[in-house]
């Protein structure tokens, strides 16, 4: 478990709770699985919880998800720590995950990673001073023919160039979703 979970400044001050609307969505997911097998929905619900509660999974969030599933918290930690998409630390408002695997590397992903880092004055894994952007690298995201690329939220930004990166950052800063 990462150190943030013992760092009290990085904890949720209020207990995270799904809205009635979100709870209804969770019930729909539960119904997709046979009686007694609702735990199958846990990855999806963790994605929902991350989105709802600040873009990362605090220990409070995971404990709450355990309550929703009526399982032990350890069963949630086990899952949350295994899958790399889950953020176990707070992140910036937008997380750039730049693919660094072979096919992207052949087309210059290393220089894109360096360029974003220089532009935002951060290293891989860090968040910009204004709290807007976190830079991460990722393993193959299945966009090899459209390399280099980065993912931000649900959106894939492909065929990246330095100019394209500039446009993307400008758009997010202005509160828009880049094309």
């Amino acid at each position: 478990m990462s150190s943030s979970h013992t760092d009290l400044s990085k904890r949720h001050s209020e207990k995270p709770v799904f809205s009635a609307e979100k709870m209804a969505e969770v019930q729909v997911l539960f119904a997709q699985y046979p009686e007694g097998k609702s735990k199958s929905a846990i990855i999806r619900v963790l994605h929902m919880a991350e989105e709802e509660f600040g873009g990362w999974l605090s220990i409070e969030t995971m404990d709450y998800v355990a309550e929703v599933f009526n399982i032990q918290p350890i069963e949630v930690y086990e899952v949350a720590t295994f899958y790399t998409m889950f953020n176990l630390e707070p992140t910036g408002k937008y997380v750039f995950e730049v693919c660094r695997t072979g096919p992207c590397m052949l087309l210059g992903s290393d220089s894109i990673i360096d360029y974003i880092g220089t532009k935002l004055d951060i290293k891989v894994g860090e968040t910009s001073a204004d709290g807007m952007f976190t830079l991460k690298t990722s393993e193959c995201l299945g966009a090899c023919g459209y390399a280099p690329m980065l993912q931000c939220g649900k959106k894939y930004h492909e065929h990246l160039t330095k100019e394209r990166v500039d446009e993307i950052i400008t758009a997010y800063r202005a509160g828009q979703t880049p094309n």
Partner: peptide, 9 residues
């Protein structure tokens, strides 16, 4: 129905 993974090859 559809179920998502969480990032694991």
């Amino acid at each position: 129905s559809v179920a998502p993974g969480g990032g694991a090859y």
